[in-house]
Design a protein around this nucleic acid. Structure first.
Lengths: 333, 333
DNA sequence: ATACCATCCTTTACCGGTAAAGTAAACAGA
DNA sequence: TCTGTTTACTTTACCGGTAAAGGATGGTAT
């Protein structure tokens, strides 16, 4: 019932606990015979080191915390998959939290991760309201990587993200190239990268498009339901828009639903472009045109930056890795 | 830099560490004034308990381990989301591992979770090859819930799953009702629940259908690529099948790809039915008919069974929660 | 006056490991 | 022969908490 400890091994062999510890940690000052006896006993009793005790003395848990806003959104899940692969290969575990787009839950998850002494945190923040806490975390030496987010400019941490203005430009430019005139934008939540996509949209509409109509930008969000609601609103406007760029793919999918419910066709009546390149976006009823950047790379880079910072060698300055976005044209535009 | 500890608080106030501990744990034998002074100091120094140290003495980590075969498969991710919601509300954290359908990685993840002293493990096993380890885990008092799996019948653990034979019956029966004759099955990997889906298929074909042709059941798997490969093989057969029941939705999607590549139409030429009700299955190019059972309930039930078993009150016998499957008819059939 | 009790806090031990310092024995060099 | 130096361990202290047992103090019952 009680698991085997080093104490037990030491007692059964009549050696000290330290001796056992040294054998297991490959210290040089143990005799060949003793080493063999210890290893045999370890095998016999099926001893496994207690990672909690280890963490307490070594002051590292070999665990990273991840906080993402939405577990149902494949974008983040794919990032987590990239993280998991990179991290588990190096013996690290992943403590996964979902903030459900709720800043309060995000805060409590971050506190929880700190209490658990995770070696580092990967955060895709839902809302820029936890600056104080994040600053406290980094100030006390906590390693942090912000992914896909660029709020908190003063924060001393690594960042892995894409060029969101370019995302907006690519999507909007593409719709203009396709001859669309009344191009609406379903805006995201009030976080910097959503605003940048909107800025890219506005810039392109002004410089290359038909300019900005008064009702062309509607508040939306990052979730399915947000896009649906925003599209409903857009469909009431006259004259009708002939294209929409949604802040991300789930919102674009919600918009598609609303368009079909209104009896309109995609892309004939209204073209739709998203962002993020969600899983199975190519298998949708109308395959979704989107702007894509590598989620696998995002996860992997985040893991590497974090593990470097944690590791024995001092880190250089905080890095800002920008992944290039590219347009993925499918049938919805 | 160094985080505040109870020791520091005790020293600054001139009381013992135990006094501080008692205040924080709401013990009764502390005077009102002392209690107030401690709480004030806790506030002032921003003290947060070290969960690792706590875990060591209390012998519980407030952490559950989850091992799923595939992070890219929304089926499991939705279960994890259900788990996360149920578990984080009760102060538990989730250590997430992906076995990538690889029994060896599964084994090492399980060992890792055990070393980390997680209070319980939720496992969707990739392959029934780690029985010995799982038995050792349960034998030493480890709490375990198997989800969506029913291998290892002797294992003393809870199970939350669906009636997989019924899944096979529903899918196959539906295709028969639609007048299909040559109904093929893309089988899953060699785990019990995949075999049961196949058994349900075979049973229904024999009792209600046209019987079993020789080449109607092809080996496949649970992933996109498996379904694609299997369907390619099926398409070579003459006369051509007019329907396919794939072991799960990703395989069904892979099959759809192969069908379209062959220049055939769904459902006119070949009807397709999956199982699992993947996210956005209703938004596919041809919305996928599938068999569905609640993933949210699966995750929640697993969490509850585990937390009950961990909790202070003794558990009853190991439970086997069966979630009823239901047919979701969409356009692919 | 004495025993008994409640209140409030401290001492000590422990969880399962690791690291630094200490020591005993064997051996080498001068 | 005496002083180093290795080699192969052990002792001690510590990580940051919790729990059980142990006082000191003052009040109450007899």
């Amino acid at each position: 019932m009680t698991p085997t400890t080093m104490k037990r091994i030491a007692e059964e062999l009549g050696v000290s606990i330290t001796t056992v510890s040294k054998v297991l940690n490959h210290h040089a000052d143990i005799g060949t015979e003793t080493r063999a006896r210890v290893l045999a006993k370890v095998e016999e009793l099926g001893y496994r080191p207690n990672a909690v005790a280890r963490s307490l003395t070594l002051r590292r848990t070999n665990t990273l915390g991840v906080v993402i806003p939405d577990l149902m959104h494949s974008f983040f899940v794919e990032i987590v998959a990239g993280l998991e692969a990179a991290v588990s290969a190096r013996g690290y575990g992943l403590l996964l939290c979902s903030s459900s787009e709720n800043p309060l839950k995000e805060r409590s998850e971050l506190e929880m991760l700190r209490a658990r002494q995770v070696d580092g945190i990967v955060l895709a923040s839902a809302h820029p309201s936890n600056t104080d806490l994040l600053e406290r975390i980094t100030a006390t030496g906590g390693a942090l990587v912000m992914i896909d987010r660029d709020d908190y400019p003063r924060l001393r941490c690594h960042r892995v993200l894409t060029d969101d203005e370019e995302v907006g430009r690519l999507a909007t430019g593409h719709l203009i190239d396709r001859g669309r005139r009344a191009i609406a934008h379903i805006a995201g939540p009030p976080i910097v990268h959503a605003k940048r996509r909107e800025a890219g949209y506005r810039e392109t509409m002004t410089t290359r498009g038909t300019g900005l109509g008064p009702e062309l930008v509607v508040p939306g969000g990052f979730m399915d339901a947000d896009g649906y609601r925003a599209m409903k609103q857009l469909l009431e406007a006259q004259p009708r828009v002939d294209a929409v760029f949604a802040a991300n793919d789930p919102a674009a999918i919600g918009a598609m639903k609303a368009i079909w419910e209104a009896g309109l066709r995609i892309p004939e009546d209204i073209a739709v472009v998203g962002a993020g390149d969600i899983a199975h976006g190519d298998m949708l009823r109308v395959p979704l045109t989107t702007v894509s950047w590598s989620k696998e790379a995002l996860g992997r880079q985040a893991a590497e930056l974090l593990l470097d910072q944690i590791g024995p060698h001092p880190v250089g300055p905080f890095k800002r890795v920008v992944l290039p976005p590219r347009l993925v044209v499918r049938s919805s535009s």
